[in-house]
C-alpha cells in the first residue's frame, strides 16, 4: 500500500476523472428527480391557473394515502408483476435449458426466440388486442373450436378475463429476454461439474437441482431485479390492451400517474405519484441487492 498523501492525490485525480460522468448523471437523473420532488410539495394544476402554485407540504402525499384508486392500482401492479414474472421465469428456464443444448440450427433458434422481445411493446399489445378483441377474434375462434368455450366471449369487460391477454402478452413478449439472461448464466457453468456428477451416477433431475439451479442463482436474481422493476412500471401494454378497464380494475400505478399528470395535468399530485413509484422501485432494487445479496459484479 502507498502512503496516505499519495492516496489522497489519487483519489482527487479519480474524482476529477469521473466528474464529467457524475455531472451527466446529476443532470439527467438527480436534478429532475429533485425537481419532481419539489413539484410534489405544491398544489400545481396546469389547467387551473387561478389556484396558483402554493406550497402545500405533504398534502399531495396525504391525498395519495387516502385515495382508494391508488391502492387498487398498487394491488393491480403487484398482481401483474408476481403472476407474469413467475410464469416468465419457469418458461424462460425451460427455453434456456433447451437452447443450451448443442443441436443443429441452434443459432437460428436462439435468434428466432428473440423475435417477440424485439417487437415494440405497443405493437405487441396491439397484436394481442386484435387477437382477443371481438367475438370473432382468433382467441375466441380457437377456444370455441376446441370446445373450451361454448360461445365467444368478450374478454375485456370482466376483470378476471381482462387480465388474461395482459399477462399472456407480457409473458409472450418478455420470456425470451428472461431465457437469454438465464442462458448466459447457464453458459458460465463449468461442464466438468456435470461430467463428474454423471460419473458419480447422478441423474438429470439431480444435476438440475444440485448443480444447475444453485449455480444459476445469480442469473435468476438479476433477472428478477430487471423484471420486477419493469413490471412495476408497466404502462404501454395495459394502456393499449385494456386502458386500465373495465372500470379501473386493471389499472397499474404508472397508468394512474400518467392520467393524473398528463391527462388531468395535475402536476403537483402527479409528481407526488411519480415520487412514490420511484420510492417503491428504488426500495425493491435495494432489497434485491442488499437483502438477497445479488452480486453487482466483481468479487467481494
Amino acid at each position: 500500500m502507498k502512503k496516505i498523501s499519495r492516496l489522497g492525490h489519487e483519489a482527487r485525480l479519480g474524482w476529477t476523472l469521473v466528474a464529467p460522468a457524475l455531472s451527466v448523471i446529476a443532470l439527467i437523473a438527480i436534478f429532475p428527480l429533485g425537481w419532481t420532488f419539489w413539484e410534489s410539495l405544491h398544489l400545481h394544476e396546469l389547467r387551473m391557473p387561478w389556484l396558483g402554485k402554493p406550497f402545500v407540504g405533504l398534502a399531495n402525499y396525504a391525498e395519495i394515502a387516502k385515495d382508494p384508486r391508488f391502492w387498487a392500482a398498487l394491488g393491480h401492479t403487484a398482481f401483474f408483476t408476481v403472476v407474469s414474472i413467475s410464469l416468465e421465469l419457469v418458461i424462460g428456464l425451460f427455453l434456456a435449458l433447451a437452447m443450451n443444448r448443442v443441436f443443429r440450427g441452434r443459432g437460428f433458434v436462439r435468434a428466432a426466440v428473440l423475435v417477440p422481445w424485439a417487437i415494440p411493446t405497443v405493437v405487441a399489445a396491439l397484436l394481442w388486442r386484435f387477437i382477443f378483441e371481438s367475438q370473432g377474434g382468433i382467441a375466441n375462434a380457437l377456444l370455441v373450436d376446441a370446445g373450451i368455450l361454448k360461445q365467444p366471449m368478450v374478454w375485456f369487460i370482466q376483470t378476471s378475463t381482462a387480465w388474461v391477454p395482459v399477462i399472456l402478452s407480457d409473458v409472450w413478449k418478455t420470456t425470451p429476454f428472461v431465457a437469454l439472461l438465464l442462458l448466459a448464466g447457464l453458459q458460465n457453468i463449468d461442464l466438468t461439474l456435470y461430467e463428474a456428477a454423471a460419473v458419480d451416477g447422478a441423474n438429470a433431475w439431480w444435476q438440475l437441482r444440485h448443480i444447475t439451479l444453485p449455480l444459476l442463482k445469480p442469473a435468476i436474481l438479476v433477472t428478477l431485479i430487471f423484471r420486477t422493476l419493469d413490471g412495476f412500471r408497466v404502462f404501454d401494454l395495459i394502456y393499449v390492451l385494456t386502458g386500465g378497464g373495465p372500470g379501473t380494475s386493471t389499472e397499474p400505478v404508472a397508468l394512474y400517474t400518467f392520467n393524473a399528470l398528463l391527462q388531468n395535468l395535475r402536476f403537483g399530485y402527479g409528481s407526488a405519484l411519480s415520487v412514490v413509484i420511484f420510492a417503491i422501485t428504488f426500495g425493491l432494487a435495494i432489497f434485491y441487492v442488499r437483502g438477497l445479496g445479488v452480486r453487482l459484479g466483481g468479487e467481494e
Binding site: I28, L229, L261, S274, F278, F282
Partner: peptide, 10 residues
C-alpha cells in the same frame, strides 16, 4: 429508473 421516476420525462 431514476429518470423515469421523474415526472416530466415520464
Amino acid at each position: 429508473l431514476l429518470v423515469v421516476g421523474e415526472g416530466v420525462l415520464c
